[in-house]
Design a protein around this nucleic acid. Structure first.
Lengths: 138, 138
DNA sequence: ATAGATGCAAAGAGTTTGCATAGGT
DNA sequence: ACCTATGCAAACTCTTTGCATCTAT
């Protein structure tokens, strides 16, 4: 009846609290496994769903990228996807007037903005070595 | 050696040219099957990839939704995803200054804006009947 | 001791690929 | 006739689910 506290569940939330950027389920499993031995991927997904339902965690769904998760205490913000290393970063600030772009008669309830490019780390590396390229932005 | 013209490939492009909104691969297959009998889903995916490579078609990748495809002649625009009927619409216009939101040191190469809410059709229906709800916007 | 949580493996959904065959050129 | 494109089914990836077992309460 009541929700139980387990080391796996605690580990998942702890990982997200300590994360410096939104993480994928696999990344979460890897980091959680270091805290509590044997955290299965199914448990990560179940834990994430419960945390999202409780509003403690938000899914970060980006165009053309696997969903990531972050704790829900960062206020309204958007995301930057690095085409070179695939990491996602938070972007604070939000251009005004976005919701007014909808055609007349449409009711806007929210919006998502995603920037693409190279993160500071990758941009600092002069020659982006030729190789497999990540998904390219529109 | 040369690319051949087949009725399936023509049907896929024709469907997208006539589409009033971005379509999913399954929607494309359904519509193409009416034009040329027996268009397999694999052929749709292969045709789409070639069209995207040639730049004739653009993938429309939305947060938390399956990718859709549209012909690449509509200029820079964004999209609106109806939470009620699940259809995607084009939104013209683009708020300025979006690219300036990135943290210093980040190189922005593109951006994507997605609006969520109810489309004009669904908003016109007064009582959104209670039932399964589509993915909710952030 | 009871009943919720976990882990594994199987099941699904969406997309890609291998291979024999159909069909442009 | 040659060789690309197709269709089917198998393979893959990501996520969810069934079930026996573990474990917090």
């Amino acid at each position: 009846m009541t929700e139980r506290s387990t080391r796996q569940k605690s580990a998942v939330l702890e990982v997200l609290r300590e994360a410096e950027r939104p993480l994928t389920p696999q990344e979460i499993r890897l980091r959680a496994a270091r805290k509590a031995r044997g955290v299965g991927i199914a448990t990560v997904y179940r834990g994430l769903r419960r945390l999202v339902d409780k509003g403690e965690v938000l899914p970060v769904e980006l165009p053309g990228a696997a969903p990531r998760y972050e704790v829900a205490s960062h206020g309204h913000h958007h995301h930057f996807l690095c085409n070179e290393c695939g990491r996602v970063f938070e972007v604070f600030g939000c251009p005004g007037g976005i919701d007014q772009l909808a055609p007349r008669g449409f009711e806007v309830s929210g919006h998502e903005v995603t920037l693409y490019g190279r993160c500071a780390d990758c941009a600092a590396r002069p020659a982006p070595r030729r190789g497999r390229r990540l998904k390219v932005a529109s």
